[in-house]
């Protein structure tokens, strides 16, 4: 059978990135976001960025680097750049087992502690919240745990992400079916309303969450986050190299109140990164405790 594809069809469709341009772009991304791009991803980069270069009418990566560094629109471009280097796979109640273990142990412990001292407040930091599924899930867990008692509590979930577009999407609180692939039906029915665009999160769940764009590589910005009882940072540090991981985890440590917990993604570990946290094992998850 004859081939339909021209026998001279080329595999490269993208603008070529020279080795030194790749290194410059990689260093730039690392400096701005802490995300480390391995040289193995060079061709992946060519392919992803070529579309962007076309849109900007640039014919090579050297010009793109100039654009990133000196153009009037460089701040906006940075946002676009970040979106191209990270993916945002997430859904409501992702990793139910971990969340159940969190709710039944870590969250319960914190709620009981606060009740005992009479300070009915709780700060949770969702670092790398993507399009908002995680902080909204946490808000739902709090509604489920505190029920009628909730209005008496002062709860803040600070949800941050590198991408402005993600924060914007999170703030609208409307999700397509895909976001619910791991969500129990009763939770969906209780906390979401059908909307022409998909499913809209209930306002009382939304009201606990404060979104803001933030770069985890910006130590000053991290210091402005109110001190937390719990920090959630799932499936984010896998994008970082070891030194950046250490830096970010160190910031979480500083931010946490004594006795506070850091929660990571299911398969992530502080092994080799931090000895300061005490791992507390629960069936389904590990919580990292700041003792004191």
């Amino acid at each position: 059978m004859g081939s339909l594809f021209s026998s001279s069809i080329s595999l490269r469709k993208s603008v070529r990135i020279a080795d030194d341009e790749f290194i410059q772009l990689r260093d730039f991304i690392y400096e701005k976001s802490g995300i480390f791009v391995d040289v193995k991803r060079k061709y992946l980069f060519e392919s992803r960025f070529s579309k962007r270069l076309n849109e900007l009418g640039l014919s090579n990566f050297a010009d793109y680097l100039k654009y990133l560094k000196f153009d009037m629109k460089k701040a906006e471009e940075l946002t676009t750049l970040f979106e191209m280097v990270t993916t945002n796979e997430t859904s409501f109640c992702r990793d139910m087992k971990q969340l159940k273990a969190f709710q039944g142990n870590v969250l319960k412990e914190k709620i009981d502690e606060q009740r005992k001292t009479g300070k009915l407040e709780l700060n949770i930091w969702s670092a790398g919240c993507s399009s908002g599924e995680e902080p909204y899930t946490l808000s739902i867990l709090l509604h489920e745990s505190l029920k009628m008692e909730l209005p008496r509590w002062k709860i803040t979930i600070t949800a941050v992400d590198l991408s402005k577009a993600m924060i914007k999407r999170a703030q609208t609180g409307v999700y397509g079916d895909y976001a619910f692939k791991t969500t129990p039906d009763d939770i969906k029915a209780k906390y979401f309303k059908k909307d022409p665009e998909g499913w809209k999160i209930n306002p009382e769940v939304q009201s606990l969450v404060k979104f803001q764009q933030m770069n985890l590589n910006d130590p000053l910005a991290l210091k402005r986050v109110a001190r937390s009882h719990i920090v959630f940072c799932r499936n984010v540090i896998i994008y970082f190299d070891e030194s950046m991981k250490k830096k970010v985890v160190g910031s979480f440590y500083d931010n946490l109140l004594p006795g506070g917990y850091l929660m990571l993604g299911h398969s992530e570990t502080l092994h080799k990164i931090s000895q300061t946290f005490k791992p507390v094992y629960h069936p389904g998850t590990i919580a990292y405790k700041k003792e004191g």
């Binding site: 081939s3 339909l4 594809f5 026998s7 069809i9 080329s10 595999l11 490269r12 469709k13 993208s14 193995k40 991803r41 061709y43 992946l44 060519e46 392919s47």
Partner: peptide
């Protein structure tokens, strides 16, 4: 198909051959 070839040198002859085979 091109999306599966993001980790090979696009100008390397064997990659290109594998690409064309996969296309067909």
């Amino acid at each position: 198909v091109r999306d599966f070839f993001l980790y090979v040198d696009p100008e390397f002859e064997p990659s290109l051959q594998m690409f064309r085979i996969a296309l067909d």
